[in-house]
Design a protein around this nucleic acid. Structure first.
Lengths: 206, 206, 206, 206
DNA sequence: TATGAATGAGACTTCATTCAT
DNA sequence: AATGAATGAAGTCTCATTCAT
């Protein structure tokens, strides 16, 4: 029935359900996960799941929504490395951090899941954005703006350049890691970040 | 039972099954498609499906495999436009063709399906390669090599540059079209191709 | 737990529950109505329903019992039309009133519900009587007795005749209205009352 | 999927399902019967039930439809008693036969079930007719026509009179037997038939 | 007392697969 | 070889009832 706030429904159980559902959805995909399995893993009755979320689809959307939110918040936790003044090195550093996040098992699985279910749950499309992390995108743009001001690069449209950098690097990472399925070595990650940073820097050299 | 070649199994029925299965898998995803539905759409009995492919997973892998092969062969459908000598214009032209292919409903759906099922069918991973079209990649590399020889660009590693171009553009197209879920206007496609071509050309300007 | 009278249980809530339950049972039938739905429509908690009535069956019997009582009391709502002295006209007039009552949505639904659940709730059988309205039956008998006294008819057993009249007319009305499911026009009702009155009058003509 | 004629679906299993479903529906009512129970009693798998009838409602309608047909065909099996020439006796004899049919457990339960489910299955309404047996109605009308010709009665509208006779008698029988729930003694049945026949005969006496 | 969260059983329906024709 | 009827397990969701607040 899904009542309003103020109900006595246990937030702890809700959290357990969300966690269990997320793990299962990420591992198995939407259709392969049963409500029974979610309830069992969460350690609650099936009806508890239904009274919290109404049905499987709403549970799925809630879970994915919260996971997206969490994922967007996470990457900035690593302290942003200070600027060295060398745009190429700065970009590569940011890129390596981004790759670690994007290719982490959870984030990669969330990405696969979202792509997989895009056509079946139109609500997903509204929340869809390739760069799960606008914060990181802004950080890259900042670097480029700074370089432009310092005269080391000439970047007329820093946001576009940042987007191209992030998109290219993330995609290359996904392709090489079989969409996060196979772990990447540090060297591979570094290589990918270097190649992408190189392209961007060369394109905007003065 | 799956007999050897030379059996009396009808190739026409096999083709009908593959076609039906592909359509359904692309539309619904692996788990949501039933063998019943496949047999019905193919106009054959269920046992025929089983005798041809053994089980659902083998059918899926066969179908996706053939679809990938077909998709890789297709893109050259449009006669490759002659070179104009202007690298930017040439790249953009190739790019627009590529986008049309990559974002076509069938190719985009095949991509989503592959990503979705990557973890459940390890065999898929072996066939995985982002650029479904090596032919096109080679064509881009050719353009770049020609430009390098002509002295209009300086491209030390044409294959890398080509790959970056294709990857960036395809990804930008996918993001903007919600992974092929929403059609892109000609103008959008042109814009994406232009931006990507621009980046590559600027990065390799002499 | 069901406490005795004098408890602190609110009669207002009890009434709300009974009203809600009656509406739902009449619309859906016993098995299709959930205690959840009753509590929700009554605007009370589920446990309140249980503490008032113990379980679903007892609630049902109480509700139907009260509804039968109410229905039996109602029919005289319209002031009984004075006698005209013409037995046929009088009978027909009474009959039309009866039909309106018997085929009213609530009374018809109560009748269907009782018939439907007769075998599952033996207590219902005790309260069963076709003529939900003894008052009306007596009124018809009165008319006939009066006619007998006046010499316009010869009615040795007025109660039997009244019963036959009421039963035949009510049944004909039920059949033609699909057991109260389809509304009857005034003309139809009048026709049914006329035919039935005619039969009775002819059978007892002097 | 419910295919056309010519399929290989076993008619024996279909019949077993129909029989099992009818018994259960008559005993318990629509909502209380589970498809599991039907399959189990029929001795077939649940999917067999579904492949034959598609879903619970279609099964129900098919079962009720066939039962109605069967019930309509049955009553004439008892050899229609020859006419004695005494309309009252003839009518009473036909009436007793009718009562036996109408109050037989199966027919009475079918009637209760139909009334109970009338609002939930609109298709039922189309097949609804109080007199499950048009044959019997015709037989009564024949008696009355014959009497009219013989001059023993004056029956301007034999079909109306027959209908009134049948309706009144069946209803009285239903009321007295708690809608077929309680068996009626021979004497009761005879009494009901006599009273009804009496009414009709008196109404049409010359 | 009254609330509604929680439960375990069970509802209808569909699935991948096998069997009999 | 090919058909589709049949199966048993499992899917989503709802139920009457109880428990903790």
């Amino acid at each position: 029935m899904e009542r309003e706030a103020g109900s006595r429904r246990s937030p702890a159980k809700r959290a357990a359900i969300v966690r269990a559902a997320l793990e299962l959805f990420l591992d198995e995909g939407y259709a392969r996960v049963s409500m029974d399995a979610i309830a069992a893993r969460a350690g609650v009755g099936k009806q508890t799941v239904y009274s919290h979320f109404g049905n499987k689809e709403r549970l799925f959307l809630a879970v994915v929504g919260e996971a997206r939110t969490a994922a967007s918040a996470t990457p900035a936790d690593a302290s942003p490395p200070g600027r060295t003044g060398d745009p190429r090195a700065d970009l590569q550093a940011v890129g390596e951090r981004l790759l670690r996040v994007v290719l982490s098992p959870a984030v990669a699985a969330l990405h696969r899941l979202t792509v997989a279910e895009l056509t079946h749950h139109p609500e997903l499309q509204e929340s869809w954005r390739e760069t799960s992390s606008d914060a990181l995108l802004a950080e890259v743009a900042d670097h480029l703006t700074a370089a432009d001001r310092a005269g080391t690069l000439r970047v007329p449209d820093p946001l576009l350049a940042a987007r191209q950098f992030v998109l290219l690097m993330a995609t290359e990472g996904r392709v090489r890691s079989l969409h996060g399925t196979r772990p990447l070595s540090d060297a591979e990650r570094r290589g990918i970040a270097r190649e992408s940073a190189d392209l961007i820097v060369r394109a905007h050299r003065t």
